[in-house]
């Protein structure tokens, strides 16, 4: 039941991010740069729920974008999951196996066995995803004959900052919605839920 609830939350967030990105964000452009709510949500899911949910969310968004407004054939359907998984390798919580392996290897105390705070990882993850997508798009533009000028770099930078700001702003409310800040309850037997 809990997994179903989590799945529904992820589905709701993903659809909401897609709709907001398609309908609202065009009105909130700053100096021609539009932030990506989708990447912000995917980053939050990546850090909060892990890679599987991040993959599902990114794949769903990619499919929706591919069906509704894909101008480059098969671009969104491939780019979103790939970029999300790539960034999840860096910013998602490390697995227990990896943590244990690092702990066993940590004889000098130099290596870090714990993850960075989620509040730092979420904006960084969103920014990295947005930067990767923009870089891929710029590369595509360059390949079709468009000169890449400072304007593209400025827009990339603006979009990057905008997306990171969106991720930082949406982080707390969405993580509350996802139940990341709920106080842990104890069962009757003392087991942590």
């Amino acid at each position: 039941m809990r997994e179903l609830k989590k799945g529904l939350k992820v589905l709701l967030l993903t659809l909401g991010a897609y709709l907001i990105q398609g309908c609202v964000m065009e009105h909130l452009a700053v100096q021609g740069a539009v932030g990506s709510v989708e990447f912000a949500v995917i980053a939050i899911l990546t850090v909060s729920y892990g890679k599987k949910y991040a993959f599902c969310s990114s794949c769903l968004i990619g499919i929706l974008k591919e069906c509704m407004l894909g101008n480059v054939p098969a671009f969104y359907a491939i780019a979103y999951p790939v970029i999300a998984m790539l960034c999840a390798q860096f910013f998602a919580d490390m697995s227990d196996r990896k943590r244990e392996r690092l702990r066993m290897l940590n004889t000098t105390g130099r290596r870090r066995e714990t993850d960075y705070p989620a509040e730092i990882r979420i904006p960084l993850c969103a920014g990295m995803m947005d930067a990767l997508l923009n870089i891929v798009l710029c590369a595509y533009l360059y390949l079709i004959g468009v000169d890449i000028v400072f304007f593209h770099a400025a827009r990339l930078l603006g979009s990057l900052v905008y997306t990171m700001a969106l991720a930082a702003g949406l982080m707390v409310p969405l993580r509350i919605f996802l139940g990341m800040y709920h106080r842990r309850r104890r069962s009757e037997g003392g087991e942590l839920l």
Binding site: I63, E66, C67, A74, I78
Partner: peptide, 14 residues
């Protein structure tokens, strides 16, 4: 199943 379905859908779209 979910991941497979999504992957399959994406693959079909591609």
């Amino acid at each position: 199943l979910v991941c497979g379905f999504l992957f399959l859908t994406a693959t079909l779209l591609v």
